[in-house]
Design a binder for these strands. Structure first.
Lengths: 195, 195
DNA sequence: GCTTTAACCAAACGGCCGTTTGTTTTTCTA
DNA sequence: TAGAAAAACAAACGGCCGTTTGGTTAAAGC
């Protein structure tokens, strides 16, 4: 009963397993089509046991979402910081973004696949998380040299839309995400100022 | 008002009401989050009565999907045929596409909002319907003059992705769909060969 | 007028849903 | 090694799900 802080909590491994399974299933089938029983079965657990780790299904989605944003942001930031020229910085960001979105992370894919409409009480926080991530692209586009007629707001929406929509037509076996990102950028720039 | 054929079955009015309600609810809440009871309540009907008009929920979605593709294709085709120059033909298609997608038709919005993954036995037909519609844009892009470095395949995916993704950020009260389409195209062309 | 039939009602079917409750097992510390 | 805390089990709760079945109503056709 002593108030010692030396005692760390147990490793809590299954919590991570739960998050992994939830991310995978949410990505594959969507939020509503995935049941708590599905998630429990995927980690070899009884449905009720999930509620020791998460208070609700909604909160489970929120945690996956947060982790997804964290992972894709981390990866994109690292890619951007390795470049100097604005054009190459944006290209690096697009490549990293697309790799996470198409190949790497179930978590990141949930962020864009699961539409935060009527998914529960935390839908506003989901949207806020997504917006917070996209601020990076706002800054990258602001650095860029563009013709004066081009509205940077719509330039960003054009680029992000094209990248995110790739999730709907991408199939493994075709061009890898890196090539796709570069081809989309080339189509966008019209082949003018290419590296 | 003698436009009614004197013979034939009864007018079967509620079937259209059902489709309208289903389209509206599928668009707003998604397929899985919309129950047959929700749809029945929206038209003032008991849940079981829907099965007189449609054999299953899956078939109901398929019918909405088909009607959505039909409506958006009809509208886009009309807009394209009113133009001669390839660039203006594509622009007209984009405007019509976006207007249907953002403002006009619940049916058309279902086609792009409801991801046809694990929605039931007819998911392949849903994808086929969507592909069949997008063939139009393939042709429009083929007519277009483009720099030789630009891959027309990715040019089309870039454009359609940007347009379709607008569904996730569009809010009524901002720029109308027509302006959005033109701004996106301007960002895509880089302000070069504008009308 | 009688029959047919389109259209819907009324009521239930089994099943899965998210979640709760009480108990048991495991694990780590004191 | 005793005991507390963490983690999972076992079993149910009420409720909603898509769908089925059989009966009722009212318009249409002969």
């Amino acid at each position: 009963m002593s108030n010692t802080a030396t005692t760390g909590p147990r490793q809590d491994n299954r919590r991570l397993q739960l998050l992994d399974a939830a991310a995978r299933l949410f990505r594959a089938h969507g939020y509503h089509a995935t049941s708590m029983r599905d998630i429990a079965r995927a980690v070899g657990m009884l449905p009720g046991s999930i509620y020791y780790h998460f208070p609700s299904k909604d909160e489970l989605l929120l945690t996956v979402y947060e982790e997804g944003v964290r992972r894709i942001a981390e990866r994109v930031d690292a890619a951007v910081q390795a470049q100097r020229q604005p054009q190459q910085r944006l290209q690096a960001a697009c490549i990293a973004h697309l790799e996470m979105l198409l190949d790497q992370s179930d978590y990141a894919q949930v962020v864009l696949r699961v539409v935060p409409d009527n998914t529960g009480p935390s839908q506003r926080r989901l949207i806020a998380l997504r917006d917070q991530y996209e601020v990076r692209f706002k800054q990258l586009v602001a650095e860029l040299e563009l013709p004066p007629e081009v509205d940077r707001h719509y330039f960003r929406l054009l680029l992000l839309g094209a990248l995110n929509w790739a999730q709907t037509w991408y199939r493994p076996g075709g061009d890898p995400p890196r090539i796709i990102a570069m081809e989309l950028l080339r189509a966008l720039y019209g082949g003018e100022n290419q590296t």
